[in-house]
């Protein structure tokens, strides 16, 4: 199996290059086929120890290993090798600064996340037991709270590429809406005030790359649409 992987060594003073690797994977095939992360680990363990990438859970829930494979942002750990056109090209997520090899600087992405105040705001005295929430109200959060902050969506978004410092990007907007949509949250107006901005929210032009790449099947574009609808409703 042939791979072409983006390599960048910040200490060398050299420009990034694409390096070729070849792996023989036939002998140890598990029943469901190896994933891109298995290949990265095998290359690191057997061919080139210096290849650097992030990984943790290896099952698609921690969001560490977002990378660009053959032009699409994916989680390496849940992307099957089978069916990928060879040589399989693996690059870091687009638009963010590269620290080394496949490792990108996520700080901008995290800043946008923190900017939406991603925590419940409810100033009422806490009850003795749980706050009640109907299953219908709770269902409003499905498709929002499952975000794993991998960055696949935001770094696939042209609006983010053009204005990475000002446009919050799909992941942060999805989390912004996650708290607006929570029947227990009391800061909807304050949240909408923050988002009502030509850049933060309104640079989303519904291109929907985010929806296409989200490894958890979430729909940030829809969340943005709902925020916009709330803003319109509020203005009337």
């Amino acid at each position: 199996m042939k791979f072409r992987i983006y390599r960048y060594d910040p200490e060398s003073g050299n420009k990034p290059t694409m390096r070729d690797y070849e792996l023989d994977f036939e002998s140890t095939q598990p029943r469901q086929g190896k994933k891109v992360l298995d290949a990265l680990i095998a290359i690191k363990d057997t061919l080139d120890e210096s290849l650097s990438f992030r990984r943790s859970c290896r099952e698609g829930v921690c969001g560490s290993d977002g990378v660009n494979v053959n032009g699409t942002n994916v989680l390496a750990c849940i992307t099957p090798l089978e069916g990928l056109k060879q040589p399989i090209e693996i690059r870091p997520l687009p638009r963010l600064g590269v620290i080394r090899d496949l490792i990108v600087d996520m700080e901008q992405f995290y800043q946008h996340y923190r900017a939406v105040k991603p925590y419940l705001i409810n100033l009422d005295p806490e009850p003795e037991n749980e706050r009640l929430q109907s299953p219908e109200d709770r269902a409003e959060l499905d498709g929002l709270w499952e975000c794993i902050l991998c960055g696949c969506c935001t770094t696939s978004c042209p609006s983010f590429w053009w204005n990475p410092d000002k446009f919050l990007g799909p992941a942060a907007l999805l989390q912004g809406y996650r708290f607006i949509a929570d029947s227990r949250d009391q800061a909807t107006n304050e949240r909408l005030d923050f988002l009502e901005d030509p850049y933060r929210l309104f640079r989303c032009h519904g291109i929907m790359n985010c929806v296409e790449v989200c490894p958890k099947g979430l729909n940030p574009t829809q969340a943005v649409g709902k925020i916009k609808a709330l803003l319109v409703k509020r203005a009337l």
Partner: peptide, 10 residues
């Protein structure tokens, strides 16, 4: 790791 990459997530 960035905190939300911790194993509690699993």
């Amino acid at each position: 790791v960035f905190p939300t990459r911790s194993h509690t997530v699993s």
